[in-house]
């Protein structure tokens, strides 16, 4: 699948796009804008935040923490009030 076709299935505002689902301890393909060098994975339930470097403007695999299925995670690119956020749901395999 070409990158363009793959991104058509992605979600998110300008600046960060990724698949809406991921597996626990898996990874998710993230595409950020040209000015972002990292993505934060935020667990709103626990407040845990992990930061991962990404290649600006390219698809990058971002690891997903080992969390129970059904957990909601926020992926954030950029800082402060100009950050862009998308939400993904972690789905346990077989569910």
């Amino acid at each position: 699948m070409s990158s363009t076709r793959q991104l058509a299935r992605f979600q998110g505002p300008g600046g960060i796009r990724c698949s809406p689902f991921a597996a626990p301890s898996g990874s998710v393909t993230v595409n950020v804008g040209p000015s972002d060098a990292s993505v934060e994975v935020i667990n709103p339930a626990t407040g845990e935040v992990t930061t991962h470097p990404v290649e600006p403007g390219k698809d990058t695999q971002v690891p997903i923490p080992n969390v129970p299925g059904g957990t909601i995670l926020i992926l954030r690119a950029g800082k402060g009030l100009n950050s862009r956020n998308v939400v993904i749901e972690v789905i346990a395999p077989g569910s």
Binding site: N43, G47, V49, L81, S83, N85, V87
Partner: peptide, 13 residues
Amino acid sequence: GLLFLSSRVAPYK
């Protein structure tokens, strides 16, 4: 909302 909620978790937990 999403910006507000994510910022509430981090860094203003």
